[in-house]
Structure formats: structure tokens, C-alpha cells
């Protein structure tokens, strides 16, 4: 899932400084699971904003709403009517959600309340770690299910750099050397031969920005791409 963290409170306050009616809009999917922008975090942020405004003697209306996904048309369309009643929408979704809401309720003002960090996994309660850089050309099959693009600080595809010490990365002692992990995994799988193969330079065209994905089987006829 996409991992995010809430922006510092002062930055959020600055974003909404000139507005009097704020809708804090949560997202019930990724940011909800990583406890950055779900229903509960919306409640906390809205309460904090109301409290801070009252202490500062400022008039501020802060309401709350959370939709299942801010990156999905059917859920975001449900926001249009409500959002029209506010000066600004403070979106707690990832960057994709913020942009999608901004486009949907254009030209209404939408501000981000979280910083989107990475695609990752939940390692333990309250701990998330990056696992995928969305490079567009998955090579996990060759590396025993450990991604060198993401897990190696240098993104090396053909073996370790030689700087690892005690199985830790030379860039940070807190990080495991991805190539030690890959070697151990392939050894356990009896697939060390994989390492004899040479992997050519990465093809960055797979990661063209902004990327788009179309599944023709599901595209409505009136919207289908004409060939």
C-alpha cells in the first residue's frame, strides 16, 4: 500500500491560514491503514485545528468527512456537493488522492495534509517499510523475491558494491545489505545460479512519467481508445 505521514501541524495551519471554512477529507484505504489520513486521523486533525483556532481567538469552522478512496471517481464524486460549502478542502489522502479530488471539484481549493512517502508493507504495529519503487518492469523473479531496485541503496542489479559490513549497508548501518538478503534467499531456494546471469541497464522508459494503464477489456465502448 501507499505509506504517508501527516505533515507538521504548523505547516497545515499555514496552508489554511486565509480560510474560514475547512473540510478535512480523509481516505479510507492506504492512508487509513498506515494511520496517516483515515477517519480517525481526520477526527484528530479537525479537533486540533478547532482547538488551535479557538485558543488563537480565530473564527474557524472545521468539519470532517472520509470517503472510501480519494483515487476513485465513484467515491470522489460524492464529495462535490459537500465540498462546495467550504473555502478549502484539506485532503489527508496520498498525492494521487489530493490531485484527483482537486480535479474533480475544480476550481475549488484542495490542500494536502500528509506527505506521501512510498509503496511499502507493515512490518509491525506502527512500523512501515518501503518495498517497491514502481519501476514498471518487475524483476523479482530473478532475485528470489527481494527487489534490488528498492532494497539496495544504490539500486545495483548485478551483485553487491562491496561496501557492506556485518551484512549491513555502507550507506546506513540500520539497513540490511539487499545483496546479502538476495544471496541468502537464492541459496535457500537452490537458485544461486540466477546470480550468474547478467542484467543489463535498467530501461527507464518503463517508468515514463506520468504513466497510464488501460485495460481494454473494461473500458466503456464510448471511451475506448481509437486505434
Amino acid at each position: 500500500m501507499i505509506i504517508a505521514e501527516r505533515k507538521p501541524f504548523d505547516e497545515i495551519k499555514q496552508e489554511i491560514l486565509n480560510y474560514k471554512k475547512v473540510l478535512v477529507l480523509g481516505c479510507g484505504t492506504c492512508v487509513s491503514v498506515c494511520m496517516a489520513g483515515g477517519e480517525k486521523e481526520v477526527e484528530l486533525l479537525a479537533t486540533e485545528l478547532r482547538m488551535a483556532a479557538k485558543i488563537a481567538g480565530k473564527e474557524l469552522v472545521v468539519d470532517e468527512m472520509t470517503v472510501q478512496r480519494q483515487c476513485d471517481k465513484e467515491y470522489v464524486e460524492a464529495v462535490i456537493e459537500k465540498a462546495a460549502q467550504y473555502d478549502v478542502v484539506l485532503s489527508m489522502a496520498c498525492g494521487a488522492g489530493v490531485q484527483f479530488v482537486a480535479k474533480t471539484i475544480e476550481p475549488a481549493i484542495v490542500m494536502p495534509a500528509v506527505n506521501t512517502k512510498f509503496i511499502g508493507v507493515c512490518e509491525a504495529e506502527g512500523v512501515w517499510a518501503e518495498r517497491c519503487r514502481a519501476c514498471g518492469n518487475c524483476m523479482l523473479a530473478e532475485y528470489g523475491g527481494i527487489c534490488p531496485v528498492t532494497m539496495c541503496s544504490k539500486g545495483l542489479l548485478n551483485g553487491p558494491c562491496g561496501g557492506a559490513k556485518n551484512d549491513k549497508c555502507e550507506a546506513s548501518q540500520e539497513k540490511d545489505c539487499a545483496w546479502v538478503l538476495i544471496y541468502n534467499r537464492l541459496k535457500a531456494q537452490g537458485k544461486l545460479d540466477n546470480l550468474r546471469k547478467f542484467t543489463g541497464a535498467r530501461n527507464y522508459t518503463f517508468q515514463a512519467s506520468p504513466s497510464k494503464q488501460v485495460n481494454e477489456a473494461y473500458v466503456r465502448p464510448e471511451l475506448a481508445v481509437k486505434k
Binding site: F9, D10, L44, E48, M51, A52, I55, A56
Partner: peptide
């Protein structure tokens, strides 16, 4: 820490 942010 939240109270501090808010000003309490």
C-alpha cells in the same frame, strides 16, 4: 505532543 502543537 498534540497538546503542545495546539497551544495547550
Amino acid at each position: 505532543s498534540l497538546l503542545k502543537e495546539v497551544g495547550l
